[in-house]
Computed example of a mutant assay.
Amino acid sequence: MRLWHLTLAIVLIALVLTVAQDAVGMVAIVVFITGLGEAVVGTTAIIALFQTLGSLGEAKGLSAHAEAVVATTVVLAVSTAIMTGWLFIGAWIVQAVVA
């Protein structure tokens, strides 16, 4: 870690803590972090979905097809659960900040 990384981290932390002093700023920070998390998990889920669909196209036998379909189903179910949970946690934090 270079000195400018440390300086940038300190400046960003100071900026976040300054904005977080007001309720509107706290809501903005929570919404930003929630949206960033949704984007990261959504991108990761799409990449994993493309991999499972690719394995479905490369499958040779019936068991390989079944494995690819199960993997696709698991990717869709897990990513949906994680994204929904992340969204509800963000909304819960926003409600706690506003109340």
Rank of each mutant, 00 (worst) to 15 (best):
M1T: 07
M1K: 03
H5P: 01
L6R: 08
L8G: 03
A9I: 06
A9F: 00
I10G: 12
L12T: 10
I13A: 15
A14W: 04
L15E: 01
L15N: 01
V16Q: 02
L17T: 02
T18R: 09
V19A: 14
Q21W: 03
Q21D: 02
D22W: 05
A23C: 00
A23T: 11
A23I: 08
V24H: 03
V24G: 13
G25L: 11
G25T: 10
M26K: 14
A28F: 03
A28Q: 04
I29D: 04
V30P: 00
V30Y: 00
V30E: 04
V31K: 09
F32D: 05
F32A: 15
I33H: 00
I33E: 02
T34W: 00
T34P: 04
G35K: 02
L36K: 07
G37K: 01
A39K: 08
A39Q: 06
V41I: 14
V41G: 02
G42M: 06
G42V: 07
T43A: 12
T44Q: 14
T44S: 15
I46N: 11
I47W: 15
A48M: 13
A48Y: 08
F50K: 12
Q51A: 09
Q51E: 13
T52A: 15
L53D: 05
L53N: 13
L53F: 11
S55E: 13
L56T: 02
L56H: 06
G57R: 14
A59E: 06
A59H: 05
K60Y: 00
G61K: 03
G61I: 09
L62S: 10
L62D: 13
S63N: 14
A64I: 10
H65Y: 06
H65C: 05
E67K: 08
A68D: 08
A68M: 08
V69M: 08
V70K: 04
A71N: 13
A71C: 03
A71S: 14
T73Y: 06
V74M: 08
V74D: 02
V75Q: 00
V75I: 11
L76H: 05
L76K: 05
L76Y: 02
L76F: 07
A77M: 14
T80N: 06
A81I: 12
I82G: 04
M83S: 10
T84P: 02
G85F: 13
G85H: 11
W86H: 10
W86V: 10
L87W: 14
L87P: 00
L87Y: 12
F88E: 12
I89G: 00
I89H: 04
I89S: 04
A91G: 04
A91V: 15
A91P: 01
W92Y: 09
V94P: 01
A96S: 14
V97E: 13
V98L: 12
A99W: 05
A99E: 09
A99M: 04
A99S: 11
